[in-house]
C-alpha cells in the first residue's frame, strides 16, 4: 500500500560522537541502547559535556534508566512521557550556543519531534544525529483536517480529528515532524480495507 521511493522518508544512521562542547542526548524506550553504544564509542571527556533526557517505555525498557544514569553524563533526566521530554529539550535549546550537538534515538515518532525541536531552535541538520530503535509507530498529520494523530501503528489509521480512515504515506514533513495521511476511500467511499498493524 505504501508508495516506495518517496524522498522525504527520513533515513537514520547509527549515532556517532561529534566534536563540540555541549551534547544533548534525547532518547525514549529502546533508544537507550543506542545511547549506551554512543557512550561506548566516545572519548573520555564526551559524557562530562553531555546531558541525557530519557523517557522509559517499550518492551525492553526495564532498567534502561538506571543504566543511562550510570554512564557518567553531566546530567541524566528521566521523564514520564515524550511531551515533557521534548519541552525540556526546547528549554535547553533556547539558551544553547553554536557547537551544541543533538543526538536522538528511539521510536520514529519521538525522534521526529526531537529533530523538529532542534530545527525550530535554528540548528542545522549536520549538528543533529538520529538513530531509530524500537517501535515503527508514526505521527501522522491528516491532510484534510490537519489534526496530528500520535502513536499510529496501523494501515489504514483512524484520524483523531475527523475520524477519516487514512492511508499513511512515506511522505514526511520535518517541519511538522509527521507523516502525511490521506483519506483511503475518497474516490469510492466505504471501500476501505481492514486495518493491519504495519508500524508496530
Amino acid at each position: 500500500m505504501l508508495v516506495k521511493g518517496i524522498k522525504s522518508r527520513p533515513v537514520y544512521a547509527p549515532l556517532r560522537p561529534r566534536p563540540g562542547d555541549h551534547h544533548l542526548i534525547v532518547a525514549n524506550e529502546e533508544g537507550a541502547l543506542a545511547i549506551v553504544d554512543l557512550a561506548g564509542a566516545a572519548d573520555l571527556g564526551f559524557l562530562a559535556r553531555a546531558r541525557i533526557i530519557y523517557v522509559p517505555g517499550g518492551s525492553a525498557a526495564a532498567g534502561h534508566d538506571t543504566r543511562l544514569a550510570g554512564l557518567g553524563a553531566a546530567a541524566c533526566d528521566v521523564m514520564p512521557a515524550n511531551a515533557p521530554a521534548i519541552a525540556a529539550l526546547r528549554d535547553a535549546l533556547a539558551t544553547a550556543r553554536m557547537g551544541t550537538q543533538v543526538y536522538t534515538a528511539g521510536t520514529e515518532d519521538f525522534i521526529g519531534q526531537v529533530i523538529q525541536a532542534a530545527l525550530d531552535a535554528g540548528m542545522d541538520l549536520g549538528a543533529i544525529g538520529a538513530e531509530h530503535r524500537g517501535s515503527l509507530e508514526r505521527r501522522v498529520q491528516c491532510v484534510h483536517c490537519k489534526a496530528i494523530t500520535e502513536h499510529v501503528t496501523t494501515q489504514p489509521a483512524t484520524c483523531i480529528g475527523c475520524g477519516r480512515s487514512l492511508l499513511v504515506r512515506d511522505h514526511y514533513s520535518r517541519r511538522i515532524g509527521a507523516f502525511q495521511g490521506v483519506s483511503i476511500d475518497a474516490e469510492e467511499p466505504g471501500t476501505r480495507p481492514p486495518s493491519e498493524p504495519v508500524f508496530a
Partner: peptide
C-alpha cells in the same frame, strides 16, 4: 544557535578559522 560563519581572506587564515569552527562542533551547513 542558527549562526552561520562566512570567511574570506588569505588561505592560511581561512583554513585556521574553518578548522577551528569544525572542531568546535559547527556543522558544515553553517
Amino acid at each position: 544557535l542558527g549562526t552561520h560563519l562566512y570567511v574570506c581572506g588569505p588561505a592560511g587564515m581561512m583554513e585556521w578559522i574553518l578548522a577551528t569552527a569544525r572542531a568546535a562542533g559547527w556543522p558544515d551547513q553553517s
